[in-house]
């Protein structure tokens, strides 16, 4: 699996060191290569509008991948983000017909908080594996959404103008969604790198036992983490409905697998303790460009999923080799 093992040892080792120390540089290079390939395949496709469009579609993915990054830092994963985003988007679109937008917003965020809380308690207190736990809550959430859908089927849905402006609008060549994303991304990066909470996430992922023995209330950190992750997913749902403009019961589901892949590509270890959000953002951009590329090559959805699976497997195996080397 490790392609670096074939190259001569000194160079290979130096390359590994380099990859381990500065994971962002190879990622940016990969992104540039992908854009160049795109430009070669379809000359002239790369222009201002294309870039704005790519960023617009990468932002929801990047926020969801942020959820994965934070949970993966503790050695977990959050597969309920797709359902949570869909729920909040769907509830927002249907409630805003009758309610005040602020009330609709609060209603839309409620399931997100609830699911995050259940996830957190399941993982933090009962110590269920996060994967199973979040899969279970997403199943329950989808069921609730189906029941809810039948109660609002008569009233119809509409997309609030504000969300449509935020999701699709472009001002001076910059997508409006950046107004939401830039502060959010800055906050996540700051939280992970500079606050106590962020350090606790790294600590738990690195050595959970030691962290607990040094007096950290494990379940409180985990519960806070999963609630945060769910709320972020809920906000993504609102942004995504403004972008897609068609509420459905499987709106954000297709983003779940790519969000895991984006975090893994961005250098966050799925075993916890290593990684950061900057890499994840570039990972999300890479995946968005890759999706465009695959669409141009007319690759079917199935092949895309296979590719994402292989990427996750390959990158994880490669990172494992790099870590072992040190």
């Amino acid at each position: 699996m490790s392609s670096t093992g074939i190259t001569p040892v000194p160079f290979g080792r130096r390359l590994k060191r380099f990859m381990a120390d500065r994971p962002l540089i190879p990622l940016v290079i990969l992104l540039v290569i992908l854009v160049v390939i795109l430009q070669i395949l379809r000359p002239g496709i790369v222009n201002e509008r294309w870039i704005a469009n790519t960023i617009k579609f990468a932002i929801p993915l990047a926020i969801l991948a942020g959820c994965q990054t934070m949970t993966m830092l503790t050695g977990g994963i959050d597969l309920s983000v797709g359902t949570v985003a869909t729920m909040s988007a769907f509830i927002m679109a249907t409630q805003v017909v009758k309610q005040d937008p602020a009330v609709a917003f609060l209603l839309a965020m409620m399931p997100a908080v609830l699911i995050g809380l259940v996830n957190g308690i399941g993982v933090g207190v009962f110590r269920v594996h996060p994967l199973i736990m979040t899969l279970g809550t997403s199943l329950i959430g989808t069921g609730c959404l189906q029941v809810y859908q039948r109660t609002v089927i008569a009233s119809g849905a509409k997309i609030p103008d504000f969300l449509a402006w935020l999701g699709t609008g472009v001002t001076y060549g910059f997508p409006n969604a950046l107004l939401l994303f830039l502060p959010l991304a800055a906050l996540i990066v700051f939280t992970l790198a500079r606050t106590g909470f962020g350090r606790l996430l790294y600590a738990i992922g690195d050595n959970e036992r030691a962290t607990r023995l040094s007096g950290v209330q494990y379940w409180q950190v985990i519960t806070a983490l999963y609630v945060t992750s769910s709320v972020l997913a809920g906000i993504t749902g609102l942004l995504y409905i403004g972008l897609i403009k068609a509420p459905s019961l499987s709106l954000a589901e297709p983003l779940v697998l790519p969000s895991v892949a984006a975090a893994v590509i961005g250098g966050t270890s799925i075993f916890g303790g290593r990684g950061g959000y900057t890499g994840t953002i570039i990972g999300a951009l890479i995946l968005t460009v890759l999706t465009t590329l695959l669409t141009i090559l007319q690759m079917p959805e199935g092949a895309r999923r296979i590719l994402f699976g292989l990427i996750v497997l390959f990158v994880t195996a490669a990172y494992l080799r790099i870590v072992e080397e040190r």
Binding site: F308, V312, T316, L320
Partner: peptide, 23 residues
């Protein structure tokens, strides 16, 4: 062979098999 934990490998295989089923 890869010594990646089972949970990650089978998760990746989940993606792959699902994609293959769609193909």
């Amino acid at each position: 062979v890869t010594r990646v934990p089972d949970i990650v490998v089978t998760l990746a295989m989940l993606f792959v098999l699902q994609g293959a089923a769609l193909l």
